[in-house]
Simulated scan of single mutants.
Amino acid sequence: MFLNTLHLWQFRNYCDQWVEFTAPKTIVLGENAQGKSNLLESVELLATLRSHRAMRDRELVLEGTEEGRAAARLERAIGAMDLGMVMRRSGRRTLVANGQTLKRQVDFLGLMSAVEFSSLDLDLVRGGPGYRRHWIDTLLVQLEPMYHHLLQQYNTVLRQRNALLKRHAKSDSSCLNSTELAIWDAQLATVGTRVIRRRARAIARLAPLASTWHSNISDHRETLILRYAPSVPMDADDPEQIQQTFLERIKQRAIAEQAQGTTLVGPHRDEIDFIINDTPARQFGSQGQQRTLVLALKLAELKLIEAVIGEPPLLLLDDVLAELDLNRQNKLLDTIQDRFQTLITTTHLGSFDAQWLKSSQILTVKAGEIIENEP
């Protein structure tokens, strides 16, 4: 796929900006806090409906305005597509594809695919489990758009069950409505099992790709293992067995849940382990090892999405070259070549050789305005 144009209107620090992409590789040049990351963030939003930099849409809208918009024209093997998203401070979104307003978010997902890699992704290794769950969920949404709806279902059930437990924990009564709780238990186990199975399958497909990349980048000195560690153990991909184990775990934690007023079992408690040469990367991995690991994960994402959708996704590299040593930079740049349309932000051009610069479109960003450098 190829991103032809991007239009940002009242998005972050952009008032009204059109961008035309004319080469497989686009270098977005500028000082910090000028809008480079905002440009890539808009593409990430159109691909995944998520931002790794913002929790609420009000953060995405230009200060002093009530709504913003990001729109793109995309060339795919199946034909051209026009995509648009309106974000409002109120939180209500409007999604448009080929001139049609979509009623369901799931109908928008999968139209554009992108892999984003930023310096913040090092938190995948050194951060808490929430970072890793968010990472695998974002990938799954692109591989299987209906997963977005499934995750919404699970989070809705989880909120309702937590609300019941919290009311009980705060009340003086020792009685908990066991009938109502049993209803939420059953729904949590049913929907949670679907989430667990999909996460497990995604990790199983991603793991060998990431392991191969990691071995290549480390010159075969290190072995990477990705291991899914769900809070509900699964011996096999058997939904009935997983669901039964889920319900048994809920019973085992019942007293603790009622005391704490929160759900302690389910996909929201899952972990993904990264192990390098039999050592947990989060606890003992050096910064170099952690960077190699994240780079391997991102390259594996590219390959997996390409295999599933049948064409290369977009690659968004947000100020990552400064985080990588020369060897890792070369591995990344050599892999990209012209196979993946790449948008890469940087504060200087020193990391690129003459051939890269010659074959790249160079855009300069200053205070939310973009100009194209003369060749």
Rank of each mutant, 00 (worst) to 15 (best):
V28A: 06
L8E: 01
Q187G: 03
L120Y: 15
G130T: 01
R12Y: 06
R88D: 05
G128P: 02
G368S: 01
S178P: 04
K298H: 07
R167F: 06
E271W: 08
K25H: 12
E63K: 04
N155P: 01
V106K: 14
A300V: 01
K366H: 04
S173N: 15
P239M: 12
I225K: 12
H148V: 01
L62A: 15
S37D: 05
H220E: 10
A210W: 00
D172R: 13
R291Q: 13
Q152V: 04
Q260L: 12
K36F: 00
A71M: 11
I344S: 07
T212M: 06
V191C: 08
I136T: 12
Q258D: 07
L324P: 00
L40V: 11
Q17L: 09
E369W: 02
N38I: 00
V115E: 04
Q337K: 11
L226Y: 02
S359V: 09
A207T: 13
G110N: 05
A259M: 09
G79R: 04
A236Y: 02
L140K: 04
V294M: 04
S118P: 07
D123P: 03
A71N: 06
T364F: 02
D57L: 09
M87V: 14
R253N: 12
A72T: 02
N162R: 06
R167K: 12
T94L: 15
Q289S: 10
A189H: 02
E374D: 10
V28R: 00
F117M: 08
I344M: 13
R199W: 03
A189W: 02
T94N: 03
A54H: 14
R194T: 06
R221H: 13
I362T: 07
H168S: 08
R269F: 00
P129E: 14
A300R: 07
V157K: 04
Q289H: 07
R161F: 13
N177F: 01
R282M: 09
M55H: 08
L326Y: 01
A97R: 12
C175F: 14
L139W: 00
S173E: 12
V61D: 05
G30M: 05
L120H: 15
V232L: 11
R56N: 14
E257D: 14
M87E: 10
A296S: 15
Q153S: 13
D16W: 00
T279S: 11
L209Y: 03
S118I: 08
A354C: 09
R12Q: 12
G261T: 06
K366M: 08
T342Y: 03
A163P: 02
V265F: 10
D278C: 09
L302I: 02
G79S: 14
L158E: 08
T342F: 01
R93G: 06
A256C: 04
L111K: 15
F340H: 10
H148Q: 07
R269A: 03
I136Q: 02
S171I: 03
E374C: 12
G266P: 09
L164F: 02
S51G: 08
A54G: 04
T245E: 10
D82Y: 01
A169Q: 13
T65H: 07
E63H: 11
L45Y: 01
G68W: 00
M146N: 08
N327A: 12
Q105V: 15
N155S: 14
D334Y: 03
A202W: 01
H268Y: 04
I78Q: 07
K298W: 01
R58K: 08
R249Y: 09
P313Y: 02
Q244G: 05
S51K: 00
A354Q: 15
P280N: 13
R53M: 15
V157N: 08
